[in-house]
Design a protein around this nucleic acid. Structure first.
Length: 486
RNA sequence: GUCCCUAUCGUCUAGAGGCCUAGGACACAUCCCUUUCACGGAUGAGACACGGGUUCGACUCCCGUUGGGGACGCCA
């Protein structure tokens, strides 16, 4: 019964893509690609209150940024469905859900519940417990009667009737055998009183109709799997294979959420993180490749992915390690590619830099070892642009040294003595020695003032590498400013 | 509270009964490289939650305790 491999990622468009969602999408994507299957994107937008097209576009943009391309689903620009099982937005599949809901009603697997919110609330209050399952109503109207009542304007939700006696055993792809007793859940709503179907129902119908073969999702869905299983059984559908993965946790070990800080892909994008680093990092939260290696490209992840190596306990999202991961991917990027990513940032910050291949190569060689995120480049490159040269507060101590003024003056004389447009690293080394001899200082009393006269700070890039990036005339103007700051 | 899931260094993890005096990575410490800061290299400190079984042998299997998490919506 080898079914074609079809997996899906089914976000609801209510904001940016969460890193947990990104990991779910990634695992499904990796599984599809690794198995030669189809990766489907389905939009779960039956909650009219919260779902917006704007959010949908944001989610799609995040997915595209990550490079998790889908084979079937919704087109990211037109939002039109593409693929044979469409439409792929649940809000456009309402007739399908209604049809199946009627079937359940007719077969006696579901019933109309006419209780109002207030009544339900009262029942909860009366039970005295914080959590309580809503009991089945004392009387359930005969279907014809109920339908007439609804037709005459009464509002009613449709509930799935849970027998409660049995037990469902799923062979979870990551957890093994999981036994779910039916009385774990009460009669649950499948159709709201406003006529909109509810997640658990749509999900089951769509997974069946779209012939989804495997469902990888977070373990918070375990009880939903039970509900969906019962729907499959009632309708005679074949259930997909399930794999429930661990949750991503915050530092406090609670489910990662907004109060833990940055949790959306969009935020990390803005913070200068690379999509390949994000993918690599979340992939390792709950999965490992087996060996000692940890840094992988997307293609390597596809190649190495194996459901058997998914694990069961929750994983804390460690931002420190994520930074390291990002820095590692960033340094591995070809200079030309890295420069393209940096371009818009420099433009936004109004930092003007030479665009020659030579400059790009030299400057990135120096600076990329100091960058963890793309954003770090801003403060690194800013000193190269003369209009941002300024004496930093960090230089205060250096400016107070007795010998600093003499070093500045000797350095200025050295620059005057040169003629080319740029200095070479060798020339700079020689000039530094001349200053040393002229003033009679060495060590930090020599280097730090010179650094201040070039970048305005006593610490920073290797001057032998930085100086050749700055025009000689600019160096002169800088040392004059440093002298003026004394 | 009820049900379900889960338990190796601070964190992410390797470990599918003897290979474990438990390996790697991040973070941390020390040293080397470096006329600064980084990068890089080396070294170090650091964990099998606890109690019972099963077994010649348990980090690995079973049971229990404890801890952690999740679900209990006309959200997904």
């Amino acid at each position: 019964m080898a079914r074609p491999i079809r997996v899906r990622f089914a976000p609801s468009p209510t904001g940016y893509l969460h890193v947990g969602g990104a990991r779910t999408a990634l695992y499904n994507y990796l599984f599809a690609k690794n198995q030669g299957g189809t990766f489907i994107l389905r939009i779960e937008d039956t909650d009219l209150e919260r779902s917006t097209d704007e959010s949908l576009r944001m989610q799609l943009d995040d997915l595209k940024w990550l490079g998790l391309d889908w084979d079937e689903g919704v087109d990211s620009t037109t939002l039109e469905s593409k693929g044979d099982y469409g439409p792929y937005r649940q809000s456009q599949r309402l007739d399908l859900y209604r049809k199946h809901c009627d079937q359940l009603l007719e077969k006696g697997f579901a019933y109309y519940d006419f209780r109002t919110d207030e009544e339900l609330e009262q029942i909860k209050q009366a039970s005295g417990e914080k959590f309580t399952r809503i009991p089945r109503p004392e009387t359930i109207l005969d279907l014809t009667e109920a339908r007439e009542k609804v037709a005459s304007g009464a509002s009613a939700a449709v509930r799935f009737k849970v027998d409660g006696g049995g037990e469902h055993v799923i062979n979870d792809l990551v957890r093994g055998e999981v036994r779910l007793p039916e009385d774990m859940v009460g009669d649950f709503i499948i159709m709201r009183s406003n006529g909109m179907p509810v997640y658990n129902f749509c999900c089951a119908i769509d997974d069946a109709l779209m012939e989804i073969s495997h469902v990888f999702r977070a373990e918070e869905h375990l009880s939903n799997t039970l509900r969906q299983k019962m729907i499959y059984d009632a309708l005679g559908f074949e259930a997909p294979e399930f794999g429930h993965m661990s949750l991503i946790l915050g530092q406090d070990k609670q489910k990662l959420s907004k109060r833990h800080g940055a949790t959306s892909c969009h935020q990390y994008h803005e913070m200068g993180y690379l999509p390949e680093a994000l993918l690599n990092f979340v992939a390792l939260l709950g999965w490992s490749a087996g060996g000692d290696e940890e840094v992988f490209s997307r293609d390597q992840l596809i190649d190495k992915f194996d459901v058997k190596r998914l694990h069961t306990a929750g994983a804390v999202f460690d931002e420190e390690k994520f930074k390291w991961m990002n820095a590692t991917h960033l340094r591995a990027l070809p200079h030309q590619k890295l420069w393209e990513l940096l371009g818009p940032l420099f433009e936004k910050e109004n930092i003007s830099l030479p665009e020659s291949e030579d400059f790009i190569d030299k400057s990135l060689t120096i600076f990329k070892t100091k960058m963890e995120t793309l954003l770090d480049a801003i403060e690194l490159f800013r000193p190269v642009d003369e209009k941002y040269f300024e004496i930093s507060d960090e230089a205060t101590e250096v400016l107070e040294w007795e010998t600093t003024k003499a070093v500045f003056e000797a350095w200025r004389a050295q620059i005057k003595g040169q003629s080319g447009m740029y200095l070479t690293a060798d020339e700079f080394g020689e000039m530094q020695n001349q200053v040393k001899d002229a003033v009679g200082v060495k060590g930090k009393h020599l280097f730090m003032p010179i650094r201040v006269a070039i970048i305005g700070k006593p610490h920073g890039a290797d001057l032998k590498m930085l100086v050749p990036l700055v025009e000689r005339e600019s160096l002169l103007r800088r040392v004059d400013k440093a002298l003026a700051a004394l």
